[in-house]
């Protein structure tokens, strides 16, 4: 794998993670992360749609008139999201019923259009596909982490299986949207301070050499 692709992957997964650093797709973080199973299905849908929509838009980019660029982006994104919706309805009817309108709302997830506009509009199809995939997986990692905490503390279960002891008192706040706010903020805080500390560590090592 060339260095270019590994940079794209590292950016999507960590250093430019859509939730932590781009702060995109926060709405869906609040809506679906109180159950691990639904979160996983939803984030897989987002990853699939982002990767293929970016690839497809990159293929089309030289032919799209500037005036209708965004309309075309929404069209292609909706196409892939509706495909996800059709697959869920046909093969996972229970999950489709539970997720309800949230699958359709992937269309409005800012990550999809954000990557289409920021990356796919100026890069080659394969790189765009990898970028979409990496961003989707970066989004998945954060959401799944939050869902584990919320489902565990809110229901005492994981993937619907009871893991907490019998005398465990569920924290109802964890099931409500506000808890996702707190958790996203905590994770973003942790990630940002990690970056700052890393920069601070580099400083003293460089300072003496600059002084010399």
């Amino acid at each position: 794998m060339s260095g270019k692709y590994s940079t794209i992957i590292r950016d999507g997964l960590w250093s430019n993670n859509p939730i932590l650093f781009q702060v995109l797709g926060i709405c869906s973080t609040l809506a679906v992360t109180n159950s691990l199973r639904n979160t996983f299905i939803m984030t897989m849908g987002v990853t699939f749609s982002t990767a293929f929509a970016s690839w497809n838009l990159s293929l089309m980019k030289d032919f799209i008139p500037r005036k209708v660029r965004m309309i075309m982006q929404v069209l292609v994104i909706s196409f892939y999201v509706i495909i996800v919706d059709i697959i869920l309805r046909a093969y996972l009817p229970e999950a489709s019923k539970q997720l309800g309108p949230y699958v359709g709302l992937i269309i409005t997830n800012c990550i999809l259009m954000g990557r289409a506009e920021a990356f796919a509009a100026a890069n080659k199809p394969v790189a765009s596909f990898i970028d979409g995939l990496a961003n989707g997986l970066g989004y998945t990692a954060i959401l799944v982490g939050i869902a584990v905490v919320r489902e565990l503390l809110g229901f005492g279960t994981l993937l619907g299986l009871r893991v907490a002891p019998a005398n465990f008192v569920p924290m109802t706040i964890m099931i409500m949207p506000p808890s996702a706010f707190f958790l996203v903020a905590l994770v973003a805080w942790w990630a940002k301070s990690l970056g700052i500390r890393k920069a601070a560590w580099k400083q003293p090592r460089q300072a003496p050499s600059a002084a010399r």
């Binding site: 089309m60 032919f63 799209i64 309309i71 075309m72 069209l75 292609v76 196409f79 059709i86």
Partner: peptide
């Protein structure tokens, strides 16, 4: 613009209809 939009929409709608 009109032709491009029309044909791209028709193409994706046809695929969705098949699915």
């Amino acid at each position: 613009v009109v032709l491009f939009t029309f044909f791209v929409c028709a193409f994706f709608v046809a695929l969705l209809a098949v699915a």
